[in-house]
Write a protein that binds this DNA or RNA. Structure first.
Lengths: 150, 150
DNA sequence: ACGCACTCGTTGCAGCCGCAACAAGGTTGC
DNA sequence: GCAACCTTGTTGCGGCTGCAACGAGTGCGT
């Protein structure tokens, strides 16, 4: 109802900017950690994280779940295959599909990754304090519907 | 104290991922809007937003305030100059510095941009509801100190 | 069986980004 | 005054990304 005095605009107080900077910083330190300790990128981490839940998954399913471009997933999967962490096999029932599956090495890597990722999240939540759950809920509500779609 | 049952890892519940997706979606719709209506990118918008507060500003000062790489600012400024929104003049006192300044057209553009940006933020805050202030505070606390620095 | 529309994964391409090197300018110590 | 060092902004470069086009494969209607 009130009209804010916006004669001076402060970018630091602009929520989309704050959100972008926060996400970039978190993403950067997370990526640096995973790159240094495990030699994988965020895209590869996401693919591995999704594969940890299922036996054989197609690129399409990951694309439907993980908010990454098809091509990004495809290239990440190619790198993971070359590194020996996943295998790619064509689905005999539908030969368009590619079944991605973790190798034994891949499962061992995931077993190392998950605790590190969870610890990272815990550190993040600790710094958020009591606001943690509200932030998570807020992220979800922002993700659901696109802001500019209306 | 409690050990969480982490036998299944859900990427959707992973806060760094949620943060990244939310920021990307917000950023994307914001960028699309500004690109379509005004023909400028987010980098250019940030430079304009900073220039709206000062008369003549160097690349260095923007770099110190706005969390963008020097080169990104430089290129954004070059595009803005070519579009006629800012002027670049070398500082007579220190000829390394470049004084960026809004033209009349640039000021008019900013006067159009700011209400749109503020309305965008209002829409975002409305969808966050009561959690809005907590989210803003949370973003700030994430920005201050790097998460992986400890 | 065949044509047509659709789906899936890969690849080419253009654009953006961060990093580092660089040139030009300034500052300090002697 | 000058040499070594720092600062500022630009540019080249390698890598990544999103988009669109593409080839291969599938399902459907007839």
């Amino acid at each position: 109802m009130n009209i804010e005095p916006t004669d001076t605009f402060l970018l630091d107080e602009f929520l989309p900017y704050q959100l972008c900077v926060a996400a970039n910083q978190v993403s950067r330190s997370f990526a640096e950690r995973f790159r240094r300790d495990f030699g994988i990128s965020i895209a590869e981490w996401r693919v591995l994280a999704h594969l940890s839940r299922a036996v054989a998954v197609s690129v399409r399913e990951i694309h439907a779940c993980v908010d990454m471009d098809k091509s990004k997933i495809s290239r990440a999967a190619a790198r993971l295959e070359q590194a020996g962490y996943v295998t790619k096999r064509e689905n005999p029932g539908d030969r368009r599909l590619v079944e991605l599956e973790l190798t034994a090495t891949g499962r061992a890597l995931v077993a190392e990754l998950l605790p590190v990722a969870l610890q990272f999240q815990r550190d993040l939540l600790r710094r958020l304090g009591a606001k943690g759950p509200a932030v998570r809920e807020a992220m979800r509500s922002m993700i659901r519907e696109a802001p500019g779609a209306g």
